[in-house]
Amino acid sequence: MEIRELTKAEEEIMQVMWNLEKAFVKNVIEKLPEPKPAYNTVSTIIRILEQKGFIDHVAYGKTYEYFPIISRDDYRKFASSKLMSSYFGGSLKQMVSFFVNEEKIDLKEADEIMKLMEQVKDE
């Protein structure tokens, strides 16, 4: 199945779903920061995530318990690949260089990343 990009609101809900592993809408709302969104807003986003293939549900009468069917790691791989190809021409070196220049990572971390990438390439 093809993974699709999430909106900011969808990603916020998915982060909660990944942490909870299974939840009713009210459980998701409890974990969201203040000001809490309306129940209907969260419920609508969850249904969209279900249509996009990110979550599924088990029905208990009219009540639904939702759970992720795409893992956080799978989405992380998708998102980082998209970021690298969209903004860094598919070059890990350019991406690492950007984060070093923005002081998001230091040179030691950058060196460790490059070494890890070389190890993966050699395997």
Rank of each mutant, 00 (worst) to 15 (best):
K22G: 13
E50C: 10
E21D: 13
A23C: 14
A79P: 03
N19A: 11
K52Q: 06
K26R: 14
A59I: 09
K62D: 06
K115H: 04
E12K: 05
R47S: 12
T41F: 07
S85F: 08
G90Y: 10
V42L: 04
S91N: 09
V25L: 12
S97M: 14
F98N: 08
R72S: 12
P33W: 06
Y64T: 05
N27I: 01
K104M: 11
I48P: 04
Q94K: 15
K104A: 15
K77D: 11
R72K: 14
E109A: 13
L116W: 06
K82F: 11
F54T: 03
E11I: 09
E10H: 07
L6P: 04
Y75T: 02
M14S: 10
M1K: 03
D122E: 14
F78V: 03
K104L: 15
I29F: 13
D111V: 00
A110C: 07
G61K: 09
E10A: 00
E65K: 15
N101F: 10
V42K: 08
L20N: 09
Y39R: 07
Y75C: 01
K31R: 03
Y64P: 11
D56F: 15
I69P: 00
L49F: 02
N27V: 05
D74G: 08
L49H: 01
I46D: 08
K121L: 07
N27L: 05
I105H: 08
K77E: 04
I45W: 06
F99M: 14
G61Q: 13
L20E: 00
F78M: 10
E5M: 14
I46M: 02
V120D: 00
K8V: 07
E5A: 15
M17A: 11
L116R: 07
K8I: 10
M84N: 08
M17K: 10
A38C: 14
Y39L: 04
D122R: 15
R72H: 11
A59N: 15
N19H: 09
K77S: 14
T63D: 12
K31T: 00
D56C: 12
F99Q: 12
E11A: 13
L83A: 07
D122N: 14
R72M: 11
F78D: 12
R4P: 02
K104P: 03
Q15S: 13
K26W: 13
D73N: 01
I105Q: 01
E123L: 11
